[in-house]
Amino acid sequence: MPRRTATMLASTLMLIALLCAGVLIKVPYAEMSPGPTVNTLGTHDGEPVLDIGKGPRQYKTSGHLNMTTVRVTGADYRMNLIEAAWGWMRHDSLVVPHETLYPDDKSAKEVDQENAEEFSASQESAKVAALRELDVPFRSYTIVGSVEKGSPAQGKLHAGDVITAVDGQKVTKDPLRVGELVTEHKPGEKVTFTVIPAAKATKAKEAGKKFPGDRREVTVTTKKAQEDGRAIVGIQPTAGHTFPFQVDIKLADVGGPSAGLMFALGIVDKLTKDDLTGGKFVAGTGTIDDAGKVGEIGGIQMKTVAARAQGAEYFLTPKGNCPTAAKDKPDGLTLVKTGTMDDAMDALKKIRTGHADSLPTCKGN
């Protein structure tokens, strides 16, 4: 066999071997890519994304206030070496360590449950931030947000229970007060919670009625916290709210807290005469808390790519994400630095009134 032919054959066989190895070798990475974007002012799967019940006057809206998402590979999927290498080279993909998305100490089911809980909490905070922006009064109180598995409170207190008092001392809308009262005890001592059971509280809330007058007392023995030795019972108190009208956010197959800002802006737009966008295509992301503070999120590069692909001109960007977002900004997309609900409202006013040149934009490092 001629030497040249032998060399080409050997090279071809080696290439085939390398490709086979690349396909067969699994690597501990996961991939993030641009996901769907949904206009919070519009419909999704035939239903309004924001369904506001009877009571408040609602106004016509125009333009877009799109929330953005990221697609991720499944918890059980293992990328091969070729897929990882291709993902690293692509502009619209981000390859990250598998444990970044799916921690080793949590099952896929636990991760999904956590994402669902964060999404639900973000909806509640979005409603609170929106109604505060509109000066619409509502009632706040303290509830059991979650109960730690294996804790003294398990089986005695339940998520959704309304806490009205601890050891006879009244608790209103400040969840931190619960922790303060519990830690006045020494580990091993008993603490008494006065609660309205979750089922009764939920029924009253859905019916738009006041909470029932009947309370029950639950006594829990505290234990020592591993990190600092203080007394704990294993619950996470959080704020609950009763709103003067129903606001349903109907968006399935979405998890995590990153749509909070866009949900809040969508609610405000539907309940105010001002057309917030002025017909412009605005997208964005960011968590939001009850006070209207916007928090940073993951996968920002994938979200800006998705938004621009759908036609967005402006992207409301959490200020903590600005340096990363600005490094790989899609052409034609203005990244607007946003730290609070007020920042977002000011930005939308500039956009709709033709003063976009004065927007606070994201800069790279």
Rank of each mutant, 00 (worst) to 15 (best):
P2S: 15
M14E: 06
L15G: 10
L18Q: 08
L18W: 12
L24K: 13
V27C: 00
V27D: 00
T43I: 07
H44R: 14
D45F: 02
V49N: 01
L50K: 07
D51Y: 01
I52D: 04
R57F: 02
T69L: 13
D76E: 15
M79V: 02
L81V: 03
L81R: 12
W88K: 11
W88M: 10
R90C: 01
T100S: 09
L101I: 07
D104L: 10
E110K: 13
D112G: 00
E114A: 10
N115K: 12
A116G: 09
A126W: 00
R132W: 03
R139T: 15
S140M: 06
I143W: 05
V144Q: 04
V147E: 01
Q154D: 09
K156C: 05
V162F: 06
T164S: 11
G168Y: 06
T172W: 02
V178S: 08
V182T: 13
G188L: 14
T194S: 11
K205P: 04
G213Y: 10
E217G: 01
T219S: 11
T222W: 05
G229L: 08
V233F: 02
P244Q: 06
P244M: 07
F245I: 10
F245R: 12
Q246D: 13
V247I: 15
K250T: 13
K250Q: 15
K250C: 05
A252N: 11
D253C: 05
G255E: 03
P257R: 02
F263T: 02
K270G: 06
K280T: 14
F281M: 09
T287M: 12
D289H: 08
D290T: 05
M302T: 14
K303Y: 05
A306T: 08
R308K: 15
Q310T: 15
T317K: 04
T324S: 09
D328P: 01
K329L: 03
L335I: 07
K337V: 00
D343A: 04
D346G: 07
L348D: 06
K350G: 02
H355R: 15
S358T: 15
